[in-house]
């Protein structure tokens, strides 16, 4: 039987795209998969994620960085009886001053283009929740701003995991 005409518009995440991915990804889209699509990544955050031994120091987590395009970081709780409760606590630092925020409610964090954000790190989790990362551009970009971290935190991070990605060399 011939394939349906519009079946090409239905995408399912292929784990082979990112063999080193540690998070349970449910959906991924960008301009490379579908011409005209922005970047979207949706995955579960399970109890224990972010609390691994190698992130057990002050300012650990996904290190400070920027993106070329605006980013929306949706933190979505999964309790249908109390959907605004995240069921977790996430530490998020905003700006070059590393202003500290604790996220415990379902919310979206708006990140303007070139705005320094993170470290981002879950510090507790009583219920799996859903993280959605949308970039208002065709692909994901990231430039490190590790220079805003205290020296001790910077020295403890494994920087091989966090290259500048899709930013031009100067």
């Amino acid at each position: 039987m011939a394939e349906k005409k519009y079946a090409k518009y239905i995408y399912e995440y292929d784990p082979k795209m990112f063999p080193k991915e540690r998070r349970p990804v449910m959906a991924y889209m960008d301009n490379n998969l579908a011409k005209g699509s922005n970047f979207y990544l949706i995955h579960w955050i399970l109890p224990g994620f972010g609390m691994q031994k190698e992130w057990d120091f002050p300012y650990a987590g996904h290190p400070p960085h920027i993106h070329k395009d605006a980013e929306l970081l949706f933190h979505i709780g999964t309790d249908p009886e109390n959907p605004m409760d995240l069921g977790a606590e996430v530490v998020m630092y905003l700006g070059p001053e590393l202003e500290e925020h604790h996220i415990t409610r379902t919310c979206c964090i708006w990140i303007p283009p070139n705005f320094i954000h993170s470290p981002w790190k879950p510090i507790s989790c009583t219920r799996p929740w859903i993280f959605m990362e949308f970039n208002q551009g065709p692909v994901h970009t990231e430039k490190s701003y590790r220079q805003v971290l205290p020296a001790a935190a910077r020295a403890q991070m494994d920087w091989s995991m966090w290259p500048d990605d899709k930013y031009p060399e100067i």
Partner: peptide, 9 residues
């Protein structure tokens, strides 16, 4: 200045 060089790009 954080000496990131972004302004040049």
């Amino acid at each position: 200045c954080l000496k990131c060089g972004l302004c040049v790009t």
